[in-house]
Amino acid sequence: MPSQLVDKYFRAEDLPQIWCPGCGHGIITRAITVAIEQLGLEPDKVCVVSGIGCSSRAPGYLDFNTLHTTHGRALAFATGIKLANPDLKVIVIMGDGDSTAIGGNHFIHACRRNIDLTTIIFNNNIYGMTGGQYSPLTPKFDKGTTAPYGNIDRPFDICDLASGAGATYVGRGTSYHANVVTSLVKKGIMNDGFSLIEAISGCPTYYGRKNKKGGPVDMMQWQKDNAVTVTAAAKMTPEQLEGKFLIGELKNKPEPEYTKEYQKIIDNLKGSDI
């Protein structure tokens, strides 16, 4: 008998998962189920959608309505699910490459529409499943199998990208700060609109090894040492914040939600002669 949480929300017969030893994805997946547990959501009223990649294996282990879709297109499928069943709580799990490279357009337009989806991006800074190619989230000068001398591209900031594209709730957590991820996911699910939570996860097998970042524990320690909460950052100077990243709630600005606006059009046209 595994823990009550795992027994209730996981397909325990499929565990242990396929992820490498020390991969942060398992920690973040658990944090998402804790959020669902704390909100008291009915499992049948939750749908978890994913694309392709290491992160997108997560719904395979979760015992909700789940959908494993094509590379980068999780948000397109999720948009369809939400419009057909506006009562469902739709949670989308994507990786950094899946969401910002292959699914980049789907991502910015889902943000722009402000459709009520809760998207969690597992950011491990690399394409893990296919062998460690650099992604749009690989930091500048870091290495991947396709960037053996260092990556010269500048990385995206997923949270800034989502904010700029119009997401109404944006936050960031890490696998070390799993409780932060839980509270952000909770608020993201409660937000009536598009919510984006970036969860920084360690990939010891590819990103860690290629960049000499150490093992799983060193990568978790790096997250602990370099994460600064939004409230702490407000009291720090730009020099002190050099090389650090913010965690916590970065944007919370509710706006009219897409499926509700769509329903208004349907209601207005009912009975009219067109």
Partner: peptide, 28 residues
């Protein structure tokens, strides 16, 4: 009814329960 029986090898230490078959030894 879904089969949720565990293949693992759990040991109950009272305060802690450990399933060694699921542990990958990451050390976190």
């Amino acid at each position: 009814m879904k089969n949720k029986s565990i293949k693992g090898n759990e040991v109950d230490h009272g305060k802690l329960i450990i399933n060694a078959d699921w542990c990958k030894g990451c050390g976190i």
